[in-house]
Amino acid sequence: MATGNYSAAPVFVSVGLTQQSEVLLPCFLLFLSIYMVTVMGNLGMILLVSVSPLLHTPMCYFLSALSFVDLCYSTVITPKMLVNFLGKKNLIFYSECMAQLFCFVFFVVAEGYLLTVIAYDRYVAICRPLFYNVIMSPVLVTFILGLLSALAHTSAMMKLSFCRAHIISHYFCDVLPLLNISCSNAHLNELLLFIIAGLNTLLPTLSYVFIFFSICCTQSSQGRSKAFGACSCHLMAVGIFFGSITPLKQLLSSNSLEQEKVFLIPMLNPLLYSLRSKVVKKALCK
């Protein structure tokens, strides 16, 4: 088994979701359906916000940005995986693998912070309506944090050499599967992984704790019930999202059912947020 860097073996082999040939076609049809619903739902939300004056509000702009991120990071993974379902060899070039890693980290980190911004937006709109236009600001910082995380992971990964036949035990180029086939000292990469993943999980969690206690301290019982009602679907999306991307969970679980959550999130978000909104329904009918 030869060792060395990507110049010696420029092609990785992805194990994929399953090795059972009899389920490859059903899996292809399943994920093709999920991807089509994801594209139509998120692209539809982006177009609806752009053309409807009723939806030219901060909340709807946040939902449009969320739909854009969902569309992008599902496109980073799914088309290549669909091709692999129908091919005999799940090959991916080194440059493609690094690009996929960069884009996935970028969009998945941005998604986590966008969900936090949306939660804070709802809290301010319901509990601090007089300060809404003052407090809420653009979400460019979410993309900056995603870019910094992606640059850190990808640049550190590109310094490693890979061995073990370059077989990736995953369905796309993620951080942990690539570290598992590295022949180099990956202490820096592991440190970056837990620092970045820890911060990107801790900061949103602390924000949710702050929002929760702030809502509980609200004097108006009607305001509390309205706030918790508005946050119900959001908490569901957040739980699925962070439950599926936590590195510790990936270390402890190899169940593909857990991995499928990554594909379900972009499909569910338009349903959880957009169709639940009366304003969005009204704009869609018009």
Rank of each mutant, 00 (worst) to 15 (best):
P177K: 00
C72N: 13
L275S: 14
N269S: 14
I265D: 10
L202H: 03
Y171E: 05
G198L: 04
L91M: 10
L147K: 08
S33R: 08
C231V: 07
A9H: 13
E190R: 12
L284S: 15
A119N: 11
T201I: 14
L24T: 01
G229K: 06
L264D: 02
A9G: 07
Y132C: 02
V11Y: 11
F162V: 01
Q250M: 04
N180T: 05
L160C: 02
A165H: 09
S67E: 08
A99R: 06
I167H: 05
S225V: 13
K89E: 14
L193F: 05
I34F: 11
L284Y: 12
F68V: 12
I211K: 01
Q219G: 15
L91V: 06
N185K: 06
C231A: 11
S155I: 14
F28P: 01
T205P: 00
I196E: 05
L130P: 07
L203G: 05
K278G: 12
H234Y: 07
K261D: 03
S256P: 04
F242G: 00
F28M: 03
S221A: 06
M1V: 10
R164L: 07
Y35P: 09
S161H: 07
M267G: 04
S33P: 10
H153F: 15
Q259M: 03
L25R: 07
T205N: 03
K282H: 13
F241S: 02
I144G: 07
V49T: 04
M1F: 13
L191F: 11
L32N: 09
G243W: 00
N90M: 05
K278M: 13
S220W: 04
N84Y: 08
S64K: 13
E22S: 14
V117R: 08
H153T: 05
L268I: 12
V279S: 14
R164S: 11
